Simulated scan of single mutants.
Amino acid sequence: MRVEGKYDAKDFLAAQMTRAQVLRLRRLSEEAYQPGQYARDLSFDEAAKRIQALEAEIELANSF
């Protein structure tokens, strides 16, 4: 992410999860009673994976 002593803003922003992901992950982790799934320092990709997993788990629980 560093280019000749300067930060590449595009790479830095792409690596961090978005504000929407932060809010969604926080809500889903609370809904699934798994607060450990929420972490503020996740990458965009890791947050997407956790969101997808929590959504699937909640959907499965609601199907009973």
Rank of each mutant, 00 (worst) to 15 (best):
G5I: 12
G5F: 00
G5E: 09
G5R: 09
G5L: 10
G5P: 08
K6Q: 05
K6H: 10
Y7H: 14
Y7G: 11
D8R: 08
D8T: 01
D8F: 09
D8S: 04
A9R: 14
A9D: 13
A9F: 15
A9I: 15
K10Y: 15
K10G: 04
K10M: 13
D11G: 11
D11M: 14
D11C: 10
D11H: 13
D11A: 13
D11S: 14
F12I: 14
F12C: 06
F12W: 11
F12V: 15
L13G: 04
L13C: 10
L13W: 06
A15N: 11
Q16T: 12
Q16E: 11
Q16H: 12
Q16Y: 03
Q16M: 15
Q16L: 11
Q16F: 05
M17H: 04
M17D: 02
T18M: 06
T18V: 02
T18L: 07
T18D: 07
T18S: 02
R19L: 13
R19A: 15
R19P: 07
R19H: 13
R19D: 13
A20Y: 05
A20G: 06
A20L: 03
A20S: 08
Q21I: 05
Q21R: 10
Q21P: 12
Q21M: 12
V22D: 08
V22T: 09
V22E: 10
V22F: 09
L23Q: 09
L23E: 13
R24E: 14
R24Q: 15
R24S: 13
L25W: 06
L25R: 01
L25C: 09
L25G: 03
R26L: 07
R26N: 13
R26V: 02
R26D: 10
R26K: 11
R27S: 06
L28M: 01
L28H: 05
S29E: 02
S29L: 01
S29H: 03
S29R: 04
E30K: 02
E30C: 00
E30V: 00
E30M: 02
E31Y: 02
E31K: 09
E31D: 07
A32W: 03
A32N: 06
A32R: 08
Y33I: 11
Y33N: 03
Y33A: 06
Y33Q: 00
Q34C: 08
P35E: 00
P35H: 00
G36A: 12
G36L: 04
G36N: 07
Q37Y: 13
Q37N: 06
Q37K: 04
Q37W: 11
Q37D: 06
Y38R: 03
Y38F: 14
Y38V: 01
Y38G: 04
Y38E: 05
Y38W: 04
A39H: 15
A39E: 14
A39G: 14
A39N: 12
A39M: 11
A39F: 15
R40H: 13
R40Q: 12
R40T: 05
R40N: 13
D41T: 14
D41S: 08
L42G: 00
L42I: 09
L42D: 08
L42W: 12
L42P: 01
S43D: 06
S43Y: 04
F44T: 05
F44Q: 12
F44A: 07
D45F: 10
D45I: 08
D45T: 08
D45C: 05
D45Y: 11
E46T: 11
E46R: 10
E46M: 14
A47G: 00
A47L: 11
A47Q: 09
